[in-house]
Amino acid sequence: MVSQKELVQLELNSNSIKQGNLACAGCQLNAAFKHSLTAIKNNGIAVVPACCTSVIQGAGDGYGMNVPIMNTAFAAAPAVASGIKRRLLKEGNTDTTVLVWAGDGGTADIGLAALSGAAERNEDIIYIMYNNAGYQNTGNQKSGATPRGTKTTTTTTGKKSRGKNIARMMVAQGVPYVASANSAFATDLYDKITRAVEDFKGGFRYIEIFSPCPPGWDVDTRDTHAMGKLATETGYWPLWEAVDGVVTLSKRGARYNDPAKRKPFQEYTKLQGRYAHIDEQLLILAEEDIEFEWKWIRRFMGEL
C-alpha cells in the first residue's frame, strides 16, 4: 500500500506526464493517467483510441509523455494493443506493460467488441477505462456509460436509461482481475494498477476509473476532487476488486455497503450542472440505480 507522500515522490521521480499539456483545468483523467503511468514505472506502451487523451498529448514538436503512445481508431484499441504485445512477446520482452487507455465511449460503445475479444483471448494487456460519463472530447454527448438522470448535449432532458457497467461485464466474462477505482482516491488507484501489473501479469486485466470532467459535467474546477470523493461516499461509485469473479470491497469504500453510512446522493448531484433541472421522478430512478449496483456487488461477494 502506497502512502500519499510516497506517491507524490514516485510521481515526481517518474515524470510520466511532463508539465503543460492540453487537458482542461481540473481534468481528472489527466491525474488518473499520471497515477497509472507511474504505477507501470514508465515501462509501458499506451494505446489510446479517439478520446480526450488523443488531444491532451498536444500537437507540437515536443512530446509531453515519458511513455510511447499508439494513437488509434476508435473501435480498435484492444486489438492494436494485442498486436503490440504479441510482437513484444515474440522478441522475448515480457516486462513491458501494454496498456489500453480509453474513455467510456470507446469502451462501452464503439470498442466493446474489441474489448470482449481481447478479454476472451486473455491477452497480456491492462485495459483502463477512464469513465467521464460521455463523449467529452466532442463536447459532452451521451455514451452507453452515461448514468441515468444526467444531461448531455444528446440527452438534454436527462438520460432515461441506466448506464452500462462494463466492469460487471468483464467479471461475467471471466476476466481474472477487474477493479473499480476513482481518481479522487489516488493511492487506492495506484495500488490497484500496481497489483494488476505485478500479480496478474500474463493475462487480461480491466480497471475502470471514475474520472470527473469539469466542463462536461458542469462542475466548478474547485469542486472536482471533492465531488469525486462524494461519488464514492454517497455509494454512487463503489470501490472494489474482483479476482476470478469474487468481489472484494476496497478499504477506502467498504463502509458504503451499508446504505445508512452513505452521504445523501444530493450532496453529490448538487455540485454538478448536469443534474440540474432534471425531472424529480428521473432523479429518484437515478438514485435507485445505486442500490442496484450494490446488490450485484453483494451477490458476487457471496453475501446474498
Binding site: V47, T72, A75, A79, V80, S82, G83, R86, S116, E120
Partner: peptide, 22 residues
C-alpha cells in the same frame, strides 16, 4: 497468431504489430 473477433480487429492487430516493429 491472434484469432481476432472481426476484420477490424485483424487489421488493428497488424497495425499494432507493425508499429511495435514486427
Amino acid at each position: 497468431y491472434i484469432s481476432v473477433e472481426s476484420e477490424h480487429a485483424a487489421m488493428a492487430g497488424c497495425v499494432g504489430a507493425s508499429a511495435a516493429g514486427g
